[in-house]
Simulated scan of single mutants.
Amino acid sequence: MTTKLSVLAIVLGISFCWLLSSCGEQKSTVENDLSEAPSDEVVETRASPLRRVEGAIGGKQVKVQYGSPAVKGRKIWGDLVPYNEVWRTGANEATHIEFAQPLLISGQTLPPGKYSIFTIPRESGPWTVIFNSEWDLEHGHYQYKEEHDVLRVTAEPTWESSSQESLSIEVVPQGLVIKWEKLNLPITIE
């Protein structure tokens, strides 16, 4: 009986080790899929899907990664996303932008690199758009530190009559456009 239990423990131990190593391999596959994801595609399934978009602005390639929350019947502006407070401009980890050549944003130069994008929504008037050097924040604005801001600009939102359920960030020839609920926030980039 003791021998049978020993053999069973060994088999279970080997199976458990195999299972753990398989999970580890699958995780790295998801990470690899993220780095090779085509433009404007959902790269991970979760409540607020992780999205990655790519495009050209003034002939310069730009990549943006963000979590795309949905309205789900909630009041967004001034409630879920408070006015006059730093917002991670998406869900989950910080939204970030990556590019290899300098960009001119509202007349100011942003050197090549990776930057998180934060915004400060306002009930009226222009919003503040922040490019921060700490781009890999797991918990978005909860880890935000103003001293790492590289550039702050303003952008004037417009409000649409129809509502868009899921947040999107588009790379267009004139820059970035953030859309969610009735918000349309263009960020001019050259």
Rank of each mutant, 00 (worst) to 15 (best):
G13V: 06
G13D: 05
G13Y: 09
G13I: 08
S15E: 00
S15V: 06
L19N: 13
L19F: 15
S21V: 10
C23D: 07
C23Q: 15
G24I: 06
G24T: 05
G24L: 13
E25M: 14
S28L: 15
E31H: 12
N32V: 10
N32H: 12
D33I: 07
L34M: 14
A37L: 06
A37G: 01
S39K: 00
D40S: 02
D40M: 04
V43Q: 08
E44H: 11
E44I: 05
S48I: 01
P49M: 01
P49V: 01
P49F: 02
P49Q: 03
L50F: 08
L50N: 01
L50W: 09
R51T: 00
R52Y: 01
E54N: 02
G55R: 02
I57S: 02
I57R: 01
I57C: 01
G58K: 10
G59L: 06
G59K: 07
Q61T: 12
V64P: 00
G67Y: 09
S68H: 01
A70S: 14
A70C: 07
V71H: 05
V71R: 13
K72H: 12
K72T: 08
R74E: 11
K75M: 13
I76H: 10
W77V: 09
W77N: 08
W77I: 09
G78S: 11
L80E: 11
P82Y: 11
N84G: 06
N84H: 11
E85C: 03
V86E: 05
R88F: 06
T89C: 12
G90T: 10
N92G: 08
N92M: 11
F99H: 09
F99E: 03
P102G: 03
L103W: 07
L103N: 03
L103H: 05
L104G: 02
L104D: 10
Q108I: 00
T109Y: 04
L110D: 02
P111V: 03
P112S: 04
Y115R: 05
S116V: 04
I117T: 04
P121G: 03
R122C: 07
G125S: 01
I130V: 14
G140V: 04
Y142Q: 11
